[in-house]
Simulated scan of single mutants.
Amino acid sequence: MKRVTTITGIILIIIGIIYYLNVIKINEDKILQQIIKSDESSIVIFENGKEVLNKDGDDPLNIASIVKWFIAIEFADQVEKGIVDPNELVKSKTLNRFYVEETDGGAHRKWLDDVNKNKGQKLEEFTLEEVMRGMMIFSSNANTDFLIRLLGIENINHTIKHELGLTRQEPLYSFTGALLIPEYLSKEGYNNNKVYEEIKKMNDQEYQRMSQTVLEEINNDTRIKYDFDLHNKKTNRLWEDRLPKGTASELAVLMEKIRGDQIKNVAYLKKVLNRSKFGNNTLLYKEGNTERSKSISLFYEDQLSRKISVVVVLNNLNWYERKIVNRNFYPFIKKIMEDGTYIRKITNIIEDKEV
């Protein structure tokens, strides 16, 4: 018995060491390994205006909340045209119409806490500019859907195709509206199996229209939100699979256009969304997270005029890969931004693997 206990203890120690080395210990190269081994991953890097790495950048992948860039760009354009006043106030209860508990990783609550902390009091209304920042910095889906209604989904999608020239980018629609399609169909009398089959057989245009229909339903009657089944993995996975896809190549070019002031009213975006803690540096980025994906789209310019644009998209992650990616993703991105030799290293490794 004692021997069995000893052997069990040794096995547990070995498992613990393996888990530490693979999951807990920071190792930026784990992200590189994931990019190399997966057919559903891409990375594109521009350095000082030149593309230096492109691994599967033309493959359409789920870019999740990175699409919020397009909403922010449309917002800045309408501000410049005088259509939208960034100082106009929006009531908290208006935004809450579009908030569904436990569906955004706590993003909306974190934004509210941050704004209230900075203002030193609990606010009941916010400026449109604060709402836009909440969408971009904290990734509030409630703020996103409010802005989609304010700016017009047709205007946003027109900007994507015709102003930004992103011909491979799939059209946007309401995230929350799409998430609540099962509840909307249930309200119409469909049972669970029928709901899944109805959604599955919808073509892209029907699905997008239905998402916007449900968004309007939420705006008029919020009761549908409270029927949402957070644990229905079947329909939730279908929602994730149908999120708008885009390509890392087009997104990296977009980052370069923003960095180079080639987007309308881009100075406004840089002022409002700059996350750099150093006065002369500029860092703008948007992450995307779902249960099975991780992505980021950013540009960085330091006071030495080193200019970096990076897009990384990782799709179809299993639970173990997700743990490793979550642990190492931002150290990987940070090293790319700060260490030019690391860009050479990963470029050489990826190019050698592709030969």
Results as ranks from 00 to 15, higher is better:
1 M>H: 06
8 T>E: 00
8 T>W: 09
9 G>E: 09
16 G>L: 06
19 Y>T: 09
22 N>A: 02
25 K>C: 02
26 I>R: 04
30 K>P: 01
30 K>R: 12
31 I>E: 02
32 L>I: 02
35 I>A: 03
36 I>L: 14
39 D>R: 10
41 S>P: 05
42 S>W: 01
42 S>Y: 00
42 S>I: 05
45 I>H: 02
46 F>Y: 15
51 E>A: 08
57 G>H: 01
61 L>D: 13
62 N>R: 15
67 V>Q: 04
69 W>N: 07
72 A>V: 06
74 E>C: 07
75 F>E: 07
75 F>T: 05
76 A>L: 07
77 D>S: 14
77 D>P: 00
81 K>S: 13
83 I>Q: 09
84 V>T: 11
90 V>P: 00
91 K>C: 00
91 K>S: 03
94 T>C: 02
98 F>V: 02
99 Y>V: 07
102 E>S: 13
113 D>I: 12
113 D>C: 00
115 V>G: 02
117 K>H: 14
127 T>F: 04
129 E>L: 05
129 E>V: 06
131 V>P: 04
131 V>K: 01
131 V>E: 05
132 M>L: 03
133 R>L: 10
134 G>F: 10
135 M>W: 08
136 M>N: 02
139 S>V: 08
141 N>R: 06
144 T>E: 14
152 G>F: 11
158 H>V: 01
160 I>M: 08
160 I>Y: 07
163 E>S: 13
167 T>V: 08
173 Y>W: 13
175 F>W: 14
180 L>C: 12
182 P>M: 10
184 Y>D: 13
187 K>R: 04
202 M>I: 00
203 N>R: 04
203 N>S: 06
204 D>F: 09
209 R>K: 13
210 M>C: 09
211 S>I: 09
214 V>P: 09
214 V>Y: 04
215 L>E: 03
215 L>S: 07
215 L>N: 08
218 I>M: 11
219 N>H: 06
221 D>C: 05
229 D>I: 15
231 H>E: 14
232 N>A: 01
233 K>Q: 12
233 K>W: 04
236 N>K: 05
237 R>Y: 11
237 R>L: 13
239 W>Y: 15
243 L>T: 13
245 K>Y: 10
250 E>Q: 11
254 L>W: 14
255 M>S: 11
262 Q>R: 11
264 K>E: 14
266 V>I: 15
271 K>P: 00
273 L>K: 00
274 N>S: 07
275 R>L: 15
279 G>T: 01
281 N>Y: 05
284 L>R: 01
289 N>D: 15
295 S>Q: 14
295 S>R: 10
297 S>N: 11
303 Q>S: 15
305 S>D: 15
306 R>G: 08
309 S>T: 06
309 S>A: 14
311 V>H: 10
315 N>V: 10
318 N>Q: 12
321 E>C: 03
325 V>D: 01
327 R>E: 11
327 R>Y: 01
328 N>Q: 01
329 F>V: 09
332 F>N: 07
336 I>Y: 03
343 I>T: 05
344 R>L: 10
344 R>T: 10
345 K>G: 03
345 K>V: 01
350 I>F: 04
353 K>S: 14
354 E>T: 14
